[in-house]
Amino acid sequence: MSVITRILDKNVVKQLPKRAAAYYSNKPNIEEDIGEFRVLYLKTSKAQAFTKKKYQKPEVLPPRSNEMPVDQNWGNVWPGPRTFHPATVPLPLRQGYVSKGSPPDKYANAELMKIPNFLHLTPPVIERQCAALKKFCTPWPKALSNDELCEKHFPFEVISSNYCHSSPSIRDPMARIVTIKFKLNDLKFDEKSRDKYLRLVGDRYNSETGYVTIVTDRCPTQKQNYDYAMYLVTALYHESWNVEAWEELKTEADMEKYIWENNESKKSVEKLFGKNSEDIAESKQYANAVINFMNEGESDYTLANYGDSVRILLGLPAKTNVL
């Protein structure tokens, strides 16, 4: 009996204050908190002992940008084009539109990675690159100080494109195209050869700007196309000076300009008066009016001129202006 009471005493009675304290106190660990609202814990502390082992995140080193000196050579840090990397760029960038709150920072920001960046081409880097390239360049010739001189000494303009590829093949079929531009007035012509040249060249001549543009792409390489273009330029020029036998068969309908002597107009006038055109008074100004009218195209002005000249020719009173 005393054993039981001793056991009871040991387990229950002596521990009673402890247990009572545990029962009545706020937490299993009693702290010195004044003003703390006591929360009732119905579960005992043991139940809380078995919690899942938390996933230990791997240790991540602090970002490299923290170690970067402020006067570093940025060109060495970011030598080439690269997607944005937040730990490497020491700027506190933010991007993103959040209706409430601040834009998200650079870490795990897809927007900053999406947009193109020119971190590899900052002004000092560009200067350095230019300085490096300078030794491969020669100075601009002093004699070509303005555009006109350039055009005078270098009338031909050769345009070609080169392409870089990072695919299995480094060649691009578009690289073979060669364009040559030059001004028509730089070539020497007389009237007939100029007309022939323009007919040969056709659409390639732009009458508004005065430039002839020859585009060649029929050969597989650029060099061949260039040679062909040069050949074309030479051939066209010489051909236009050549006079063929059949050119004499050029009829009135082929004429690009209106020449009064060859035309019906002269014949009509002669028939009308029954004399040769030289003998008819006023025929010259009439001829001029007709030539202008035909060559420059119809307009109120040329028509009016024509009308006036006809009136003079036929001896009719001039047009009255009634206001």
């Binding site: 700027l91 960038l93 933010r94 991007q95 993103g96 020119f118």
Partner: peptide, 27 residues
């Protein structure tokens, strides 16, 4: 400098990359 280094064609100017003093960024 930011608009040079990060040319963004986004229409909404508030959505473009920015680097401003924290007083302006945080409420």
């Amino acid at each position: 400098a930011i608009s040079y280094l990060f040319p963004s064609g986004l229409f909404e100017k508030k959505a473009r990359p920015l680097m401003k003093p924290p007083e302006e960024v945080f409420p």
